[in-house]
């Protein structure tokens, strides 16, 4: 059986989540490996969510927020950009493959971009294979 990765998506309510909805209503096709959790803003994302997701078996984590300058709360994603950049560096120095974590800015009108990013990221994670380093073995 081919490897079907589990990918956690964390999307902000105002842009990326709405963009995902748009991708759905316009019936765009994208892989079903993504499980999306909606948060009010990308700055709501505690970096520990990402570490924990990998421990609980995620093969990849995709964070989506509004484009810088477009955050519903004005500056949320500007803080998030710095914070998540640090998260990425920490994952990398711990020995985790950095390609398993990605941040993308996807607006409410970019249903296309949402579908493209998910397709491409899923392909990338498939190539990387199962994530075993952080995963807690049951």
């Amino acid at each position: 059986m081919s490897f079907e990765p589990k990918i956690l998506g964390i999307a902000c309510n105002w842009c990326t989540y709405t963009g995902a909805d748009l991708a759905g209503t316009t019936r765009l096709q994208y892989p079903q490996n993504l499980r999306v959790v909606r948060v009010m803003c990308s700055s709501r994302i505690n970096p520990s969510f990402i570490f924990r997701a990998f421990q609980l078996g995620a093969d990849g984590v995709l964070v989506g927020g509004c484009h810088p300058g477009d955050c519903h709360y004005n500056t949320g994603n500007l803080y998030a950009r710095r914070r998540l950049a640090v998260t990425k560096k920490i994952l990398e120095f711990s020995g985790m493959e950095p390609g398993r974590f990605r941040v993308e800015w996807i607006s409410a009108s970019e249903g296309n971009k949402f579908a493209e990013v998910v397709t491409e990221f899923t392909k990338q994670i498939k190539n990387l294979g199962p994530q075993t380093q952080f995963k807690i073995s049951q």
Binding site: P68, G69, T75, L78, Y79, R81, R82, R83, L84, A85, V86, K88, R102, V103, W105
Partner: peptide, 29 residues
């Protein structure tokens, strides 16, 4: 490297993660 400021060097600074610049580059991600 990313934010151009070392911790605890000046009382005038703001800690880098409770701060941002509008022109922070997406490259850091």
């Amino acid at each position: 490297d990313m934010f151009g400021q070392a911790a605890g060097m000046s009382v005038e600074d703001k800690p880098v993660l409770v701060n941002f610049r509008v022109d922070d580059s997406d490259k850091i991600l």
